[in-house]
Design a protein around this nucleic acid. Structure first.
Lengths: 248, 248
DNA sequence: TTGAAGCCTTGACCCAGATCAAAATACGAA
DNA sequence: TTCGTATTTTGATCTGGGTCAAGGCTTCAA
């Protein structure tokens, strides 16, 4: 929550990288100006906990760059990631005043924050914001439900393949890149974070990643960079309908 | 999708059992009248599939009485429940025209349906509806995230205890009943449905239910009725912070 | 260049829960 | 009352992934 570092690079909304996907996506320029008055940027370093579960929350905001994760921890230390926050994702819940989950920066991260109170007031007056937030929340709910299938019914190998496919898809959606032919994806998660995402141990993650590589489903450049020669092959390994839609 | 039976008992909104919890909860009486013009009731029998994943959806609606489940199925038949729809829960997604999941009636069920197109138009003009839907969707997202922890990190025994606790809580919330002392809950799910909810096999469910009974955590009246002598004991078995809030 | 701290991999072993099989119980319909 | 089907329980056995343990590989600081 403290110890912010990297200078908070202030943007103009006009050239904001998440302008057309974030909670402000549908706003007209006059609405954007109002938002501009209550927004501020904050930067955090990889590894920092931005928000502790149970803490009072006095802001909400969007991830501008970088990745963060939402996690839940049991008393005995078992942890489960319940959200993976990529650029344009929204953090916090209007109308709730304490955080329900830990939010941890996985990479260095820049957030566009709004003080909660003014944001809530603005939501009432600006239907475009509430509309977009509803749409984003419904998308998150769909993602959560896909994730439940992964957690409840897939094998370790399928889980790893699913995770890589999910990240590749979101990556492509953000970069507007096509999805044909071989593509390369940055997997910005440690083995432990992947394990927390998938309900596995880090050893099992390591073994299955190696196995997928040995079987030629993926290639590795270093530890974190994955190349996918044949996306449909990957979907097949993930146990997904391999015809299903290319983008989200 | 067809074969509706039990006479569609039409209600007045005024004495509708979910009036103050459903998507219409915040509507004023004039808004309710508008909704009334586009609503109709449908009844389904236990076991019927109301909606098939991929089917076109021309309506959305609320569960009035009974229980339904949202499930996802893989090609090889593995299935995972991804939503448990109790009275007042909303079915369907405005803006989407084909169903993403199978919806199956677990018990006999009555739904209050709205034709999708008019409902969407009304949502734009009636902020109370969109507001309430956002609130409900955020609640569902929270529930989905709690569920992810259950699926990813809990043992079979903890999963069963969690499921019973979740149903008891929702039950209490709906009936406005307090939660002190011994309480009795109807578990309206077959062992197989519980297994699909929890990512287990039905044999494991059966064994763990028996074990919880043997250990005095729960009592059984028949197969489906559960008595809970000490709710905190149950939460403890579920691996939850046993102090945490009583209601949702 | 040598440590030290983080990550990641690999191996050996074990166990919670899956699988396979059969029997017991419940419940309508005829 | 009896048969037929669906549901549940219980037992025996198997196995995927967890646990424990040991090294290896990077990176960065001294």
């Amino acid at each position: 929550m403290l110890k912010e570092s990297a200078p908070t690079a202030p943007h103009e909304c006009a050239d904001c990288p998440i302008r057309h996907r974030a909670v402000c996506a549908r706003c007209e320029s006059d609405e954007l100006e109002l938002l501009d008055q209550i927004k501020y940027y904050r930067s955090f370093e990889a590894g920092q906990t931005l928000i502790w579960s149970g803490d009072p929350m006095d802001f909400v905001g969007s991830v501008v760059t970088g990745i963060a994760s939402l996690t839940q921890t049991m008393e005995d230390g078992r942890t489960q990631m319940v959200g993976l926050l990529l650029p344009s994702d929204f953090v916090g819940r209007p109308g709730r005043d304490s955080a329900a989950y830990d939010v941890v920066a996985t990479t260095n991260i820049v957030m566009c924050c709004f003080r909660k109170k003014p944001f809530e007031e603005m939501m009432v007056r600006t239907p475009h914001i509430a509309q977009r937030l509803l749409e984003m929340t419904l998308d998150e709910l769909d993602a959560a439900r896909e994730w439940m299938l992964v957690l409840g019914r897939k094998t370790a190998r399928e889980k790893i393949a699913s995770l890589i496919a999910i990240i590749a898809r979101r990556d492509a959606a953000l970069n507007m890149a096509g999805m044909r032919g071989p593509l390369t994806v940055d997997l910005p998660l440690t083995r432990e974070a992947m394990a927390d995402y998938l309900g596995l141990t880090l050893e099992t993650v390591s073994r299955q990643v190696s196995a997928l590589k040995k079987d030629g489903v993926i290639g590795l450049e270093g530890k974190r960079r994955v190349t996918i020669a044949d996306f449909n092959r990957l979907l097949d390994e993930a146990g997904d309908d391999s015809d299903g839609g290319m983008l989200a």
